[in-house]
């Protein structure tokens, strides 16, 4: 491969990535606002993750099965003590 061809490939590789990234990013913006508006997902409630972060605060979206497992474990620990 001569250098000119490599440079051309590089140019196209660069430009296409910029295009894809930009389209991807703006598709993501669209996705975010659409999901929020149509009520599929409320992103803004996730902001509370920082505010209600005590270990016994309500979960925003819990991993329920795992959570029960852990609670069981902690109960067991308590019994052990």
């Amino acid at each position: 491969m001569d250098m000119e061809l490599i440079r051309t490939l590089q140019g196209w590789g660069y430009v296409s990535m910029i295009f894809i990234l930009t389209i991807g990013l703006y598709a993501y913006i669209y996705h975010l606002y659409k999901s929020q508006k149509s009520g599929i997902k409320d992103y803004e409630k996730y902001a509370n993750l920082a505010l209600n972060d005590e270990i016994d605060d309500c979960l925003v979206e819990g991993l329920y099965s795992q959570d029960e497992k852990k609670i069981n474990r902690s109960v067991k620990n308590e019994l052990a003590e």
């Binding site: 250098m3 490599i6 440079r7 590089q10 660069y14 990535m17 990234l21």
Partner: peptide
């Protein structure tokens, strides 16, 4: 994404 960016931006200069 990071790896692709690295390859496209750096490798050709490297060869030259």
């Amino acid at each position: 994404v990071i790896a692709y960016a690295g390859i496209v931006t750096v490798v050709p200069d490297f060869m030259e």
